[in-house]
Design a protein around this nucleic acid. Sequence first.
DNA 1: CCACAGGTGTGTC
DNA 2: GACACACCTGTG
Length: 287
Amino acid sequence: MEQFVHRREEFFQLRDIFSCGQAFRWKVLNDGSYRLIAKNRVLRLLQKGQDIYFYGTEEEEFAQIWSDYFDFSRDYSALRKQLAIDSIMCDAMEYGRGIRILQQEPFETIITFILSANSNIGRIMNSVEEIAKRYGRYLTTLEGEACFGFPDAHTLAQVQPQELREFAKVGYRDRYVVEAAQMIARGEVCPEDIYTMDLDRGKKELMRLPGVGEKVADCILLFAYHRRESFPVDVWIARVMEELYFHRKVPRKKVAELGREIFGDNAGFANQYLFYYGREHQLGKES
DNA sequence: CCACAGGTGTGTC
DNA sequence: GACACACCTGTG
């Protein structure tokens, strides 16, 4: 019998957590459970109502690794009360009831969000999968499929950009990925240091990496460094905010500023609820 | 075949 | 600092 850990949580839905655009290495299996690859480990998650079963781990590892990864120490009930400032947020939070912001690994998050620029979730997931298959460590085989971890900076630093383009279909982002990995491998940018920086300083540091602009830096800060005040503005968030809050066209930079003003310290959570709600309902799109 | 989606980098004013 | 435009691939 495979080892597992059981938790019961009101605000936790695998579907919401994985399809809200923050993570790319998950898959729904035949029985409706989810397979997640993270931290060079494979986890299988099964949810029945508010009961969540984490297969392939035990209490000690769960406490050490997965508890923080799934943000178990946060009181989502209290967070939701703080964010219930208007009917828009209430609707968005009801729709994305089970969203949690994951605490993912910095290097993997940096690379996957470099790939995310000017792309879409399906394509990003394919690219990341191919990169792991080719350069990552073999972990285990699940339902006949081999699972690989995400490679480290030293490994990706030695890859030929052209190879990445051919195998992983990353397009012109090939050199961004390799050059960013090289800067990190050389210690020019140190992902660990960013944990201790304030938001602006951390953002500036990340933006030294090629392919990392305002939006990607904000995503990395939110999804890897758990900076909940970060407010990434992509095309969806811009549309949702313009349609629901501003009722006019607003420049990206201003949307980010206003988002932080409206939602304060929990702007990142508001952002995720609104993104998920807006994108699923195709809000603000013409025709 | 063509249109469209999607952030960043670069070049121009 | 504001803008236009190129960049690559998948999908409709």
